[in-house]
Nucleic acid binder design. Structure first.
Length: 318
DNA sequence: AAACCCTGCAACCGCACACAA
DNA sequence: CTTGTGTGCGGTTGCAGGGTT
């Protein structure tokens, strides 16, 4: 499907914004609010592409932006959120008030990557740098499959959507997939699907081969963190790689629970949706869409020994 | 002082999704 | 169902400024 360009490029300015342009944009948005970015430049008297205006506003001009250096707490939060969400900068930014996705992305690439390398941690996988060559003796699980190997391509990271929510192409934590009727037996699949470039076929044998056995706890020993995503499968169904909220909702009537997220730690768990635990709005990344809040189909038991983590991921009283 | 290198960040680009017609 | 539009996202680029030689 062809589509028209977002603007007439021959009549638009590019590059750095001038003070006057900034003022025009600010004044216009003060008067009319955000939105309708395509028509905004013309209405505001700007020779700019609408996308450019939006970006300038969101990343630089917004009054609620927090300028200045990132704090140590913010650093750690970004690292932890990245280990959970991958390069979903907008989701990470949603947990850092006053910070933009672009800012966090830049900060990640320029500072945190280096910081993690200095800690001996691969910033993409959040595993020890030598993990690829050394299989942990403490983890009696198969080595990672090619699908679990980090692949850094410009197109490897696509948005989380209803069809790829189970793809785990950016999840870096262990995913424990169990049969709902038998959570603790040997048939449970354990997958650390860190940056698997292709969709993880949840509930298949391939999945069981894709585990490195390296937990987040090993990546963050100082946090004593072990996050498992336990996905309970319906006993008589195989879960396909394509799951959308509608399907999940439909399945809700048939089997429950489907997804169990667990923190392991000292604090006795309280069941909340992971999205709520992360503080995400229901429309941001939460596929429970409220059903999870009832702690029936999508549950998170959040505990953490580290005070920072507990602060970041403190369970909500629901 | 000049040339070169490196780093950080603002901005751009292309793609994909949501939604309306 | 198809098509077009608006918007958001993530990856990449280019430039300014500081540091080094």
């Amino acid at each position: 499907m062809g589509r028209s360009p977002c603007c007439e490029k021959e009549h638009t300015n590019k590059g750095a914004w001038t003070k006057e342009e900034d003022e025009r944009l600010i004044n216009y948005i003060k008067l009319h609010g955000e939105g309708c970015w395509r028509s905004l430049p013309k209405a505001a008297g700007l020779l700019r592409c609408g996308k450019s205006c939006r970006l300038r506003w969101i990343n630089y001009l917004r009054p609620d932006l927090k300028r200045g250096n990132f704090t140590e707490d913010e650093d750690e939060l970004i690292i932890n959120l990245h280990s959970l969400l991958g390069n979903k900068w907008s989701l990470i930014a949603a947990r850092l008030p006053g910070r933009t996705d672009n800012e966090i992305k830049n900060y990640w690439n320029t500072h945190i990557k280096r910081k993690l390398y200095s800690r001996g941690i691969d910033p993409q996988t959040h595993r020890p740098l030598n993990a690829a060559s050394a299989t942990p003796a403490t983890a009696p699980v198969p080595p990672p499959s090619p699908a679990a190997v980090p692949v850094a391509t410009s197109s490897s990271n696509k948005k989380i959507n209803s069809d790829t929510i189970s793809s785990s192409n950016t999840l870096t934590h262990d995913v424990v997939i169990t049969n709902n009727s038998n959570n603790s037996n040997g048939s449970q699949l354990v997958s650390n699907s860190a940056y698997a470039n292709t969709a993880t076929k949840v509930g298949t044998d391939e999945d069981s081969n894709s585990s490195s056995g390296v937990t987040v706890e090993e990546s963050f020993p100082h946090h004593q963190l072990n996050l498992d995503l336990s996905i309970g499968l319906p006993s008589s169904h195989q879960v396909s790689s394509s799951v959308n909220p509608e399907k999940l909702k439909a399945q809700e009537h048939d089997q429950k629970p489907h997804v169990l997220y667990k923190w392991y730690g000292n604090i006795t768990g309280q069941a909340v949706c992971l999205c709520y635990s992360l503080g995400l709005q229901s429309d941001q990344a939460c596929y429970c869409k409220g059903v999870g809040a009832t702690a029936t189909t999508t549950m998170v038991t959040t505990t953490a020994t580290d005070s920072n983590l507990y602060r970041f991921y403190r369970p909500m009283n629901i």
